[in-house]
């Protein structure tokens, strides 16, 4: 599949399916999903609650394993990698932004942004983290703990943390879902701005039509199947 990457495809799925056991028997969450996303493209995954958007995002990022089918991320078949292999791949290529921010409460804003660089063993973690926090307008909040930040500020720290490793692919799960309209817009501007600037591929799950419209492509999922 290396040739696919050369063609500019960073994410590809083939016959992707996910089933889980439930008291009512096997439940199909995703069924036969074929998808290709090109480098630098921004894609919104939309659909009603329970349609399988977040499950698809988890499978694309290698956070979960499919019941059927295959996923290629940056040319590597995730289904052939074990958990550590997938983790290493994510560490090199992927960034995340979550609806509930997922900042570590015991770390300051600066330390939260340094975290992925430190995990990668980078010596310049503090310098790089400061730069990115400057870029998201949080220079004055470096030593603040998450509980001292507003929702919008928390998400900006999370975006800084996602971009600090210069990932090829950025996954965002409802990045503005927990924010008011004004903060949400500011966060979205930042996300798309950095995306363009760094030429990152952006895959985001959202309920918000305005946010989805700002993406190059909108993929709608209903009952586990792609309809667009």
């Amino acid at each position: 599949m290396q040739d696919r990457k050369l063609d500019g495809i960073v994410l590809r799925t083939q016959g992707l399916g996910k089933q889980v056991s439930s008291p009512e028997g096997q439940l199909t969450i995703l069924d036969d999903v074929d998808l290709e996303i090109r480098a630098g493209e921004s894609v919104a995954l939309v659909g009603p609650s329970g349609a399988g958007k977040t499950t698809l995002l988890a499978l694309l990022a290698g956070l979960d394993q499919p019941s059927r089918g295959q996923v290629w991320l940056c040319g590597e078949d995730l289904t052939t990698l074990d958990e550590d292999g997938r983790a290493r791949l994510r560490g090199r290529r992927v960034g995340f932004v979550f609806q509930s921010f997922h900042l570590v409460p015991s770390l300051t804003a600066l330390e939260n942004v340094m975290l992925p660089l430190e995990l990668a063993g980078r010596a310049d973690a503090a310098v790089r983290a400061r730069e990115v926090l400057d870029a998201v307008g949080l220079t004055s909040r470096l030593s603040h703990y998450p509980k001292q930040l507003s929702g919008g500020e928390k998400q900006r720290v999370a975006i800084a943390r996602a971009f600090v490793t210069r990932p090829e692919v950025l996954f965002a799960d409802e990045p503005t879902g927990n924010l008011d309209t004004a903060s949400g817009e500011r966060v979205a501007d930042l996300l798309f701005g950095l995306n363009r600037q760094a030429r990152t591929t952006l895959v985001l799950v959202t309920h918000e039509r305005d946010l989805a419209r700002r993406c190059d492509r909108v993929i709608e999922i209903v009952a586990g199947r792609l309809v667009t």
Binding site: E83, D84, V94, H102, L119
Partner: peptide
């Protein structure tokens, strides 16, 4: 879980 999403392995 967050560290793992950022590339931390089980061994790490």
């Amino acid at each position: 879980a967050l560290m793992k999403s950022m590339g931390a392995t089980q061994v790490f």
